[in-house]
């Protein structure tokens, strides 16, 4: 797993550049990691029998997005950014190194896991890159917003 900060920053950059609802994209980018509820079971020395694992599959995350979207006035308008966020999560996790297996993209139709094995999940440099990229995007938008403001004044 990549850390939540990297996921949320990638979600923020995606939301900012696609001009979609940033908050919902960022929420979506963390939905698959609801699987981390299992840490509470590990901490309590209980076996969860991998009950929560489907949350870290596209189908499980999309179902969660659907459930969340119901609590918004316009279900469709909430659902789409949540799905975009979920996509950023899986794209990022797809590049993580594992010794075997990977993300079960086609669950429940297939149990096969896919992984590209490029970045180690404990590599903090990925977080630094995400922070720098977010700062760059923020600076670019801030610069153009300032220029626009100055033009309207003059």
């Amino acid at each position: 797993m990549a850390d939540w900060l990297t996921h949320s920053l990638v979600g923020w950059i995606t939301g900012k550049t696609t001009k979609r609802d940033i908050a919902l994209i960022v929420i979506g980018s963390l939905i698959p990691d609801l699987v981390k509820i299992n840490l509470a079971f590990i901490w309590l020395n209980l076996n969860d029998h991998q009950f929560f694992e489907p949350l870290h599959t596209p189908i499980g995350a999309v179902l969660i997005a659907g459930i969340i979207a119901i609590s918004f006035n316009d279900i469709r308008k909430a659902f789409i950014p949540l799905i975009i966020g979920i996509s950023t999560h899986f794209i990022l996790d797809f590049f993580l190194v594992h010794v075997h297996g990977g993300i079960k993209l086609l669950f429940p139709f297939s149990w096969e896991g896919w992984q590209y094995n490029l970045i180690r999940s404990d590599d903090y440099r990925m977080t630094i890159v995400a922070i720098l990229a977010a700062l760059l995007v923020y600076s670019i938008y801030w610069f153009f917003a300032r220029q626009k403001k100055q033009k309207t004044r003059s």
Partner: peptide
């Protein structure tokens, strides 16, 4: 195949995740 994560590096994943919680709450 063997993938070894040093203890501090593994713990750092969780520590790095913490700032995301107030960030996401604020944005939302």
């Amino acid at each position: 195949k063997l993938l070894i994560s040093e203890r501090w590096a593994y713990s750092l994943i969780f520590i790095r995740s913490l700032p995301a919680i107030p960030f996401v709450m604020y944005l939302f």
